[in-house]
Amino acid sequence: MTTPPNPEQKSAAFSGIWPALLTPLKADLSIDHARLAAHCKSLMARGCAGVTAFGTTGEGPSFSMAERKEAIEQLMANGIPADRIMVSTSCAALPETLELTRHAVRAGVHGCLMLPPFFLKGVSDQGVIDCYRHVIDGMGQDLPQLKLYLYHIPQVTGVGLSHHVIATLKSMYPDTILGIKDSACTTAHSIGLAEAFMKDLTVYVGFEPDLPEMGRRGSTGAISGLANFMPRVVSRLVTQPDADVTPADRERVVRLIGLLGDYSLMPALKGIMALFSGEPGWLRVRPPLVALTPDEFQRLEKTIRDFGMAPESD
């Protein structure tokens, strides 16, 4: 049985910039908890409302359930407030997604980001709906505390979220599903989602050049990979879409994304973190990703310097 939308529900969705955290690794490729916490503190000191762990940018599916649970616990132990943490709990196996979601909710995090099923392809809308229902219904007594954001990134998952899926899930769980993160990187698709759902849900985009357009349509923030090292620029794009500086900010981001197109994205983003922090450990990635070679890092460094980007310039 469904219930009508709660008019106060949309206001519970997050606002501001919640960077899609890169995950720093030690030499043995285990998570560097101290460095991750320090990175979070630096981002929040620069105005970020919260942080998002283990999404695509954070190589989330490359880590085990135990590693992901421990990382969230370590963040809180190192002084990151639980309600300023978003967790991507997506796994290929639904019982693991449910377990991570329950762990995150019981830890008191702001909310959870969940992909559709991402191993089997050619999945029907009903199959996608059933996956979300399995997790949501499985929360039991923890369900009232769950704030869930649907995550659409079909170029990675091979499985998208249709309007039918979104509308059906929203009608079934009006107090649970707060928003949609659209990382399809297609402006027309994001606008279509805003026109269809922004009345009852907050639609966020992961593609930073589209942030001003979505800000004009009511989007209140972003989960952004570039925000790992330029959070103020990303924030201005969505919160000040018509400011005088916005066109130049947007053009700068478009140019940067174009420059990074010559590299594998996550290793390149980690390369920028290594460059700005002076900590080469940021270069490490989990297989199947491959870290930048010394020559690639040197080329990236020259690219970023020639671009005129520095850690203080955001």
Rank of each mutant, 00 (worst) to 15 (best):
P280N: 01
L256M: 09
A196R: 10
C131T: 08
I153A: 02
S62P: 06
T186V: 15
V205E: 00
V105Q: 09
V156K: 00
D242Y: 01
R250E: 10
M198K: 08
S30A: 02
V165P: 04
A243H: 12
M266S: 01
R305N: 05
H163I: 05
G58V: 13
V135W: 12
D314V: 15
K121H: 13
D142P: 05
P24H: 10
H39Y: 04
S219V: 07
F276S: 01
V205I: 00
G261K: 05
T52G: 14
I85E: 00
P154N: 00
L201Y: 08
D130V: 09
G60P: 07
A34D: 14
L143Q: 13
G111M: 09
T2F: 01
M44Q: 13
C91R: 09
A38S: 14
L269V: 00
I85W: 04
G308W: 00
L148I: 15
V87F: 12
G225Q: 00
H152S: 01
M1S: 13
P212L: 02
A45S: 15
R284Q: 08
S30G: 02
E279C: 10
R102W: 09
S124G: 06
E195T: 10
T89F: 03
H39T: 04
T23H: 01
C112H: 10
T202N: 06
G206C: 04
M309A: 03
K302W: 11
G122H: 07
N228D: 05
V234N: 07
L94F: 11
M198D: 14
M86C: 05
N228S: 08
I257R: 09
M198Q: 15
V159Q: 06
S15E: 11
P116D: 06
A227Q: 04
R255M: 11
T52N: 14
H110D: 12
L29D: 06
S11I: 05
P19F: 02
T246E: 00
K26Q: 13
T157L: 04
C48L: 00
A248S: 12
E312F: 12
Y149T: 02
G215R: 00
E8H: 06
R68C: 06
I31V: 15
P267V: 11
I85L: 08
M1G: 11
K10M: 01
P95M: 13
P24Y: 03
T202K: 04
E296K: 08
T52P: 11
T187A: 14
V165F: 03
L237F: 10
A27E: 15
A194W: 03
I177P: 06
L146Q: 10
G138E: 13
P95A: 12
A66W: 05
N228V: 05
D306S: 05
M65K: 03
Q141K: 11
I31C: 05
T303L: 13
V156C: 07
L260G: 03
S183K: 01
L237Y: 06
T157Q: 02
G122V: 08
P267Q: 06
